[in-house]
Design a protein around this nucleic acid. Structure first.
Lengths: 337, 337
DNA sequence: CTGAAAGCGCTTACAG
DNA sequence: CTGAAAGCGCTTACAG
């Protein structure tokens, strides 16, 4: 009962059909009916069905040097931005025959290193990933192993080395636009809550630029995570400033912004009456909470990343130079401003 | 530049070190220093480092008949309940050397069939999954292929066949408890919004039982998804009932409940003043929206599923009978009641 | 038209 | 102490 009924192989079919294993392989894989006489062909197909034959994925992988698997490397799968990305990725990958391997790096250098180690073992044919702690240069090793990489977020142009593509929205422009919106609404004391790494960096850049251009003093609160908890902590710090506290707070992502909203409400403040709060990403919750934010088209980003990766995996795919693919963002105004 | 620098293999190291490939394998894999003389050993290890050797995962998989991969099959990764589960799964799987493959079935029979097909190709050593359309009996084929399965949700006891484990909370008891809470708060007209499949079924059972015991008439609104959109649609239907409309609405999961909240607010109703709303799962957003709900410990469920699977994959693991592992739920009261 | 053979990169008995 | 060989399950030239 607990017995391992070994999975049937082509050899088993060949034995039953009285042909060679190679013939079985040909019948099962090649469309051209020409080679094998129809009766033999049909006998083989019938037996394969009866016996419950399934091709061995590991064997095919070794033989064909293709895993038919794409890896997706994310810092935190529980941040709702990423499941949307994964879904877009998978929706494009699955019809093309690719499975999706997920690595949650937890946003740590060790996690990212571990993910790269696995990639280098040939677990996937390509990867799309968001790295906080590695730059394109660090990733060249991986890409050199003939493993196409699509990075989320813009990358500096590299010369030489294997192509590394990227898909992204213009984070600097988006956070600049959001900052301008706040200024237009009359805000002068605008703080931004960021983490010291990852997407926070470019987003802080757009914010800082616009603030200085407007003659306003940027106020960055740096926490160590892109989470709601980080937002709560930072917001409490801001509120402790008393009378000088900002009238508007920009979270580097929606999770941070939502945490900030929570902390503001706990402190008895109304949004946007006492303080305006905005975020970045447009995760589903943002809509429910009325959070004004920057919409990133995560499904499209995932789908585009998958398409780019799959193109690279075509025979001629490695010929073209690195591509930087930019999608449009959108400022979504809701009730939190 | 675009050249494929083929990945180095044990053969390359052997060539450089002047030993056989088998010796390289032994040095790289076996702890016992005994067999190979220290200088040879060190030379091999040094060369392996210099040459940038990484074991080929596909080759190991074929040879060892183990993929070191666990599959996770979910109906909708964008439902925030599942990323938490995935995270718990991965946090336990990764240290044990297992990668996690994600399949989003979209809750459709085709999606589930495709996932099972992939499993049968030997892409993973085991799987934890939530199936809407297949029952344990349908899954026996997969399990018979010596692929351990951990189902999310209680399964009817099966006799014979390979063991299929399950991890779950008592959904019937949980929805019964939630329904009792609403009754205790004085509600009499309590409706439940469900999908016609998946976890909705057992949850509707607990609700119906308690309602009838209390002499109240159950009112089930059946939609075809466990999404916020489904909640919006169903809530609009309920509100169209006018004066007889329910004073409390129970969503079969939090997404549905959140949709219902949205529709209620759009209709100008206050929560819980005009209508109480409760959900099921306790996704992160529930906390932010003040939704009273049933807490499922998703991280623990994921971790427990991973541990159960990994135990099954041990040499003696297939000996024990099927296990049904129940975790405790918790009613989390917030402001929506 | 079909079979025998090589080989993908490993691990593991088995010889010497 | 180390090498030669077999084999995991496939695919693909290459012979006949």
């Amino acid at each position: 009962m607990q017995h391992r009924s070994a999975r049937p192989t082509q050899k088993d079919i060949a034995l039953a059909a009285g042909v060679s294993q190679a013939t079985v392989s040909i019948v099962l894989n090649r469309a051209e009916t020409s080679a094998v006489p129809v009766p033999t062909r049909e006998r083989i197909l019938r037996l394969a069905g009866e016996i419950g034959y399934r091709p061995s994925h590991p064997a095919r992988t070794l033989r064909n040097a293709r895993t038919m698997t794409l890896a997706c490397i994310v810092p935190d799968i529980t941040n709702p931005f990423y499941p949307g990305l994964v879904r877009g990725l998978q929706a494009t990958a699955a019809p093309a025959g690719y499975a999706v391997l997920i690595y949650d790096t937890d946003g740590t250098p060790e996690g990212e290193r571990r993910a790269l180690g696995w990639l280098q073992q040939g677990r996937a044919d390509g990867a799309v990933g968001m790295f906080y702690h590695f730059r394109a240069a660090d990733l060249t090793d991986v890409a050199r192993g003939n493993l196409p990489l699509v990075l989320l977020g813009r990358q500096s142009v590299r010369r030489g080395g294997p192509p590394i593509d990227s898909v992204f929205i213009d984070n600097v422009a988006a956070s600049a636009a959001m900052t301008r919106l706040l200024i237009r609404r009359g805000h002068r004391r605008i703080a931004m809550i960021v983490a010291g790494f990852g997407p926070s960096q470019v987003r802080a850049e757009g914010y800082g630029k616009v603030m200085r251009e407007a003659g306003l003093a940027p106020q960055l609160i740096v926490d160590n995570a892109h989470s709601a908890e980080a937002g709560v902590r930072a917001m409490r710090t801001l509120l402790a400033q008393g009378g000088d506290r900002p009238t508007a707070v920009f979270g580097a992502n929606d999770m941070i912004a939502i945490g900030a909203m929570q902390a503001a409400r706990e402190a008895g403040l109304s949004i946007p009456g006492d303080v305006a709060i905005v975020g970045f990403d447009d995760i589903p919750t943002a809509n429910l909470l009325g959070l004004t934010t920057v919409r990133q088209p995560e499904l499209e980003l995932g789908a585009l990343a998958a398409r780019t990766l799959i193109e690279r995996l075509q025979p001629e795919g490695s010929r073209t130079a690195s591509r930087s693919l930019e999608l449009d963002f959108e400022i979504v105004e809701r009730s939190s401003v």
